[in-house]
Write a protein that binds this DNA or RNA. Structure first.
Lengths: 238, 238
DNA sequence: TGATGCATGTATGTATACAAGAATTCAAAT
DNA sequence: ATTTGAATTCTTGTATACATACATGCATCA
């Protein structure tokens, strides 16, 4: 009954900023100042600061001491690591999920598939995104590893922006196809097949990252001026 | 060149408190107040608050609104999930590590083994703990997945207190034995064997958790009822 | 003309003041 | 004596003030 009706301003700031960042509303490399955000969100600097601190510890914001912060640029390296984490966790989860059978959860999963189809027909990537996320969460529940989802969600944050670009790119039908096969394998108890499908499914994000890095360089590299290819110093003399 | 010579008070607070918690210096269920910690650490409430906020988001501290916080009790459920995460990540990492060969890193790994032996001979569990952690980190480096360590470290936090109890319990020699076999397998490029060893090695923590939960109930359950008749009203209606 | 150093401005980092809610305690009544 | 309730006290949550460090721009010098 007594739900958390009013959550703290700091928590609100965190959620709003987190959503704005992963949805690319706040673009990578965009500077984020405490004062400006405070005015934007209608609170003082204190809760904003708390939110930025948490975002920084998650790698979504880069704070430089006394110099202000920027929305973290997407780093292919970090995405690659997060991908590794998520892939191995979800592959392990789906294997356990396939070895269980809970009709209620399976039904809920199939409902998310319907939501995804509807989202595609309406060309609404946001709805698809939410249903997708819920489906992956339900796999954890089915596996009896609900708590593992928190870790997956953490790693996902590093990839969500790439994923957002990917979904905007219109590969939704391919993803839905993956999902159908995946759910069928899990429901049929084919653990090995489900693992295989999950691995290839999650690899899709990474497959195209190079392409995206070229098409949206401003999200990946500091592109305040033209196309000065900076990159990392090649570590010349070993 | 320009290293971070002075890190912020908030960062200091976070590291100190984090260390105190995982080392059981701050015991589970112990209350943590901002004011008290601020005086203890010689700073104001602000940086302490920032640190507590981060610790809360990591699950090491439970904050209840306007009611103060406590060091999170060890929850077997959470430990089990973290165990699952760490196990799958490290097993995947060690497989890749076994398929690579970097003599410099392998040498560093063997050095940690020597440190561990020394720590055992001196019966210094803290030193053993540090060398152990470094060894696992070096496996990530060897696998070319250095960034994955951050995620493993996150999951580790949920288990480190159990691990600390376990190490105090004096199973160091068994752990070292695991480590030797593990390193040998990796060095020999036997990926499957290394995976097997890593999995059983990491399972040791969980194997004994029930025993520890019984031997140290105050760390696992709210057992502040030493002599006072407080706690939640038993809801015992007639 | 270009570079260096100083001054000023701006944003962060920390401390403190203030408000609101929760827990404890004390008192009174049954 | 137990229970209930109100008040007090302690704690957190937020705002604001102040100090410090970095950045930018201008002036001066080579």
């Amino acid at each position: 009954m007594t739900e958390k009706l009013q959550l703290s301003a700091a928590e609100r700031c965190y959620r709003i900023l987190s959503r704005k960042i992963v949805s690319l509303e706040l673009k990578p490399n965009e500077s984020v100042g405490e004062q400006a955000l405070a005015e934007l969100l209608g609170v003082s600097r204190t809760p904003v600061r708390e939110a930025l601190s948490r975002l920084s510890s998650e790698g979504l914001v880069d704070l430089r001491a006394r110099s202000g912060g920027i929305v973290s640029p997407i780093r292919p390296e970090a995405v690659r690591d997060a991908q590794f984490v998520r892939e191995n966790l979800e592959v392990a989860v789906v294997a356990e999920a396939a070895n269980r059978s809970n009709q209620r959860i399976l039904l809920a999963i199939r409902q998310t598939l319907e939501e995804q189809e509807l989202a595609i027909s309406e060309n609404n990537s946001s709805v698809f995104y939410l249903a997708d996320e819920r489906m992956h969460y339900l796999f954890c529940c089915l596996a009896g590893r609900e708590g593992v989802w928190d870790f997956i969600a953490d790693s996902k944050k590093h990839m969500d922006r790439v994923r957002r670009i990917s979904i905007q790119d219109g590969h939704l039908d391919e993803l839905l196809d993956d999902h159908h096969n995946l759910v069928d394998s899990v429901a049929a108890g084919k653990a090995a097949r489900a693992q295989e499908l999950m691995r290839s499914h999650l690899s899709r994000v990474l497959l195209n990252i190079e392409e995206y890095a070229h098409r949206f360089p401003q999200y990946f590299e500091i592109s305040d001026r033209s196309e000065t290819t900076i990159l990392k110093t090649p570590n010349a003399h070993g």
